[in-house]
Simulated assay, not measured.
Amino acid sequence: MSFKQYVTSRTFFLQLLAAFAILFVLGYLFMHWLTFTTDHGNEITVPDLRKLTVEKAEEKLDELDLDYVVLDSVDFVADYPKHSVVTQDPVPGAKVKEDRKIYLKINSSGFTQVRMPDLVEKTYRQAVPTLKALGLEEGKITYKPYLGKDMVLEMRFNGKKLKAGEKVWKSSKIDLVLGDGKVVFEEAEDTTATKTETPENGGE
């Protein structure tokens, strides 16, 4: 039988059909094995662990066959309980595989302290952003006679005058005493009187 007769024969078509069937079965078995080994279709939804203690978060993750790693603590966040989860990665609602590690950051036990910046003789517009950058808040604003309008004259916390470099708790409200841009003429008169009297005293 010639090659042309063979490829057009019934035997060739039956063998070709059998080869396609074998390839199809092998492909199906491979995809089934791949699905089984990668656990495809059995993804786990990451729960929301925020505001939970590490112990509670661990219990919740154990139920879902997930693991966790505590990365570190973050500066105290007032809206979250102490030692509770503040952030997590992956985020809540993400789809992950079994035994996936969830990375946690925990709220610290309390406020951290910062050193007061030197705001004296700076303008109000300069002082407020500086306070906020350090995690401090603007408190009560009062004025006193001083030629420089809105110039910071004093920094206070709970009525106590602060100096640059002193430590205060983050999120503290810092009161500022500003100049009102006015000159006290009485003081100017007293100063003039003093200067006038000095030569006379010196003459005696």
Rank of each mutant, 00 (worst) to 15 (best):
P92F: 05
L131C: 07
P92E: 11
P92R: 07
T87C: 00
T196N: 14
V114P: 01
L64F: 03
T11F: 11
K149H: 12
A78K: 14
G27E: 06
K56R: 12
V85E: 03
F111E: 07
K60L: 13
P129M: 07
W169T: 01
R50P: 04
T38Q: 12
L16M: 14
H32S: 14
D190F: 10
R10W: 08
H40G: 00
D62K: 15
A164W: 03
G159Q: 05
Q15K: 14
T38D: 10
E121T: 11
P92Y: 05
G93Q: 06
T142A: 09
L16K: 08
Y143A: 02
F157Q: 14
S2R: 10
E166S: 07
K56G: 00
L162T: 06
A164P: 01
T87N: 08
E138L: 15
K82D: 05
G93K: 05
F24P: 00
L147V: 10
P145N: 14
M155F: 03
V168Y: 02
H32I: 00
T191Q: 11
V46A: 04
D39Y: 11
L131D: 06
P145A: 13
S9G: 05
Y80C: 04
S109W: 01
Q126P: 01
V54F: 01
F76A: 02
K95L: 14
L131N: 05
K60N: 13
N201A: 03
R156L: 15
K170T: 08
G181T: 05
T53K: 05
P92N: 06
E63S: 12
K105L: 07
M31Q: 14
E58P: 00
H40L: 12
G203I: 10
L26A: 15
V152Y: 06
P47Q: 10
T37H: 09
K122F: 04
Q126D: 13
T8M: 05
L14M: 14
F3H: 06
V152F: 06
R156K: 15
F111A: 08
H32P: 00
G165F: 02
E200H: 07
G202M: 11
V96E: 05
G135S: 08
A78Q: 12
K161D: 09
T194R: 12
T130Q: 10
R156G: 00
A164S: 15
L29I: 11
P117C: 05
P90F: 05
Q15E: 10
Y80H: 15
E187K: 13
E58D: 15
E59H: 08
R100C: 02
I22S: 12
Y143E: 10
G139D: 08
K101N: 09
M151D: 04
Y143T: 03
T142P: 02
M151V: 12
V74C: 04
A57R: 01
L52P: 01
N107S: 07
L14N: 11
L147K: 12
A133N: 10
K173N: 08
K132V: 07
L66K: 03
K144D: 11
L14R: 15
D72I: 00
S108A: 14
